[in-house]
Amino acid sequence: MIPSALSPTVGVGFKPEHYEGIAAAPGPLGFIEIHAENYMGEGGMPHAMLERLRPDYALSIHGVGLSIGGAGPLDQDHLQRLKILCDRYQPQSFSEHLAWSTHAGAFLNDLLPLPYTEETLSHIIRHIDEVQTVLNRQMLLENPSTYLRFDESTIPETEFLNLIAQRTGCGLLLDINNVFVSSTNHQLDPRAYLTAFPLSYVGEIHLGGHNEDTDDEGAVLLIDAHGSPTADSVWALYAETLAKTGPIATLIEWDNEVPAWPVLRAEVERANALLAPSLAQHAA
């Protein structure tokens, strides 16, 4: 099984509109991440761009449609499409989400939440075993941002992820913005979540922006919108996490209202400024 092994550099979620900017001045960028489903067409511009960038950058393939947290069996056609993509581009990492998105043949196009129980745990473990066997790769599983919690849940999310990693050998993708969003939404302390998180399994960190709203009771409700810069509070949690883990590959996610390349590049430089000292310290 090929391990997920992204070097500790800073990457961005690749958008075609940034192709010229990246090609003209590679600068601080260490890797690019693509949403797998956008590269499942047979040919054309998406593959032409990726073929051109691939020799110069490490690659992370990030799936958003496999529905690993679903109750039903995995979509075998989709799993095969992922295999074809991974075989073609040989990414340094493949990752997916602790969420579901397909039900009864309908793809709902969102990362939906699930209760954490012995039953859902066993389903997810079976799905991840299957993914890793078919792809012949270790995958990373990402913690979700959630707006609801369920009375049915019997296992805390951090322990749920820990058990999955222990029993499948998968790694974890720690989305620190998601930690902040979920913790705020459920009136929990994000630092307590990170203290409980099994950091030794983390192979990649995600950073991104969120929006602020309020729920029916007037409590703060954060939305994982990926349409703005990473919040200062999330940067602070990132720095604290690096101090515990040492350097880890870090991605800036900005999927909506995509800014001009210099704006995104400034976010990459901000992450580099925190990652570089961690690298130096680690090397010393």
């Binding site: 109750a71 039900h103 309908a106 129980t117």
Partner: peptide, 15 residues
């Protein structure tokens, strides 16, 4: 439980 939960959630999403 998992299947029933998902069916209910998906139904309410699209209702």
């Amino acid at each position: 439980m998992h299947q029933a939960f998902e069916t209910r959630f998906a139904h309410n999403l699209l209702a």
